[in-house]
């Protein structure tokens, strides 16, 4: 957001504020999630603080607060609060937050990549698929194997999350694009494991009925 913005209403200089400091009218909102929240673009965020900011901004920007204002301000309020809600959804979740930063940095985050099996999981995935097949064909003897897979993958997922957190810290300190490439790799791996876990859990739930 450029610092030389002027108020749409009174044409005075407003800097980076959401409301004009002179006539108090709501300005067209910034579209950047971090900018709207008034935060530096860090991958590690304090989610309690984020929630408090979300509530504070909601009180200021929600359409309920603009029912008796001008048409223009009502429209800005609708725009601003929809961006605010979208932003909060993305930023409160570490994975979505990282995806957002990656996309802002020009990285492609395709869904297809999650189909590539991470090499270290090849063997486990192969056996798992066999077990899933068995369960689907009504053979319940594969249940213990699926249950242990469920445990394994949950542990792996936790491990991946710790890894992500470390990578987030590295990026926040260095702003190095190389780190973002690594983060993208970790996200893809995470997505893959999450899909497997979902599949196992669905199958266990179906089998249990």
């Amino acid at each position: 957001m450029s610092a030389n913005r002027t108020c749409w209403q009174c044409a005075q200089s407003i800097g980076a504020s959401l409301f004009c400091p002179h006539c108090k009218s709501l300005q067209p909102p910034p579209s950047g999630y971090y900018t709207l929240f008034g935060l530096d673009r860090k991958l590690n965020l304090n989610t309690n603080e984020l929630q408090q900011r979300f509530y504070d901004l909601s009180r200021q920007l929600h359409p309920d607060r603009f029912m008796r204002k001008s048409e223009a301000e009502r429209q800005y309020s609708l725009d601003a609060s929809s961006i605010l809600n979208d932003a909060y959804r993305a930023l409160k979740d570490p994975v979505k937050r990282a995806q957002y930063v990656l996309s802002q940095e020009g990285f492609e985050i395709g869904e297809q990549r999650s189909k590539d099996v991470p090499p270290e999981l090849l063997e486990e995935v192969f056996e798992l698929n066999m077990a899933l097949e068995e369960m689907r064909s009504g053979d319940d003897s594969a249940r213990p194997q699926l249950e242990s897979a469920q445990n394994n993958f949950t542990n792996t997922l936790n491990e991946v999350d710790r890894q992500l957190e470390a990578q987030f810290r590295t990026y926040d300190e260095s702003s190095n694009r190389e780190v973002l490439t690594r983060i993208r790799g970790t996200l893809n791996r995470r997505k893959y494991i999450q899909n497997l876990l979902d599949e196992v859990q669905d199958q266990l739930a179906v089998g249990a009925q």
Partner: peptide, 8 residues
């Protein structure tokens, strides 16, 4: 369950 207003 997305908070509204919501957009895409």
């Amino acid at each position: 369950n997305s908070t509204i207003p919501a957009s895409a």
